[in-house]
Amino acid sequence: MLDSDWIVLLSAGALAFSVMNYVLLDGTDLGVGVLMGLTRCAKDRRVMAVTILPIWDANETWLVLGGGGLLALFPLAYAILLPALYLPFILMFLALILRAGALEFRDYAPSDGIKRMVDGLLLCGSLIAGAMQGIVLGTLVQGVPNHAGQYSGDGAEWLNVFPLFCGAVLVVGYTWLGACWLYWRTVDEIQSRSKLQAKILATMTVVLLIVLVVWTATLDIRYEQRLSDPLVGCRPCRCLLHC
């Protein structure tokens, strides 16, 4: 029989695997949604929609495994986190529904004006879903007040500056993934535009991530110790923290 340390480690690994897959796969779809909403040419928007249409729902299903996995493997964490993050999660799911409807039904729009509006909804849905996921992560890193296995906060910890900043960083990161995807799956003008966008967004993501790591280290002394451990963080990190 496996001892309980191994079971915990494997459970965490399984959960981390599904969250990572979700971020890489559906994060890309959300990024394409953002870029689509910002594209003016209707023909280009259609091509961008077609690249993700057959696969976005499969990518999104990793979220179900992540949520179900958290409930089944770490029920106590689930019971504390879900009440704390009730509003961000509700907003995220509504945004995902909005996005799905907009993406699947945009071809049935009776006029170009309405189609433009539907793509506007796709942009809003993608932005809100990505931002809420970042906020959830930020709240988790910041720490959720709990007592005896019960959530003991007021349901508004996620409105702090740190979680909101995490939301913004994740949206930029997702848009970067989306630009990379479009560079891979399209040709000619959209491809060259995506290449430029991907370069700019990659720079932004790296800069924002550095700020985020330094900020994380200042949140809690344990984070600082862990991040300045040469095995976990890297030496430049330590230099940054102590200067």
Binding site: A79, P83, Y86, L87, I90, G101, Q150
Partner: peptide
């Protein structure tokens, strides 16, 4: 019962209802 406030539950229920009816 979860430790979610009454207003949050009422608010989210109405929002979901409106969303579903529209969609």
């Amino acid at each position: 019962l979860s430790s979610v406030s009454r207003q949050q539950v009422i608010g989210s229920t109405w929002t979901i209802l409106v969303f579903y009816l529209v969609i």
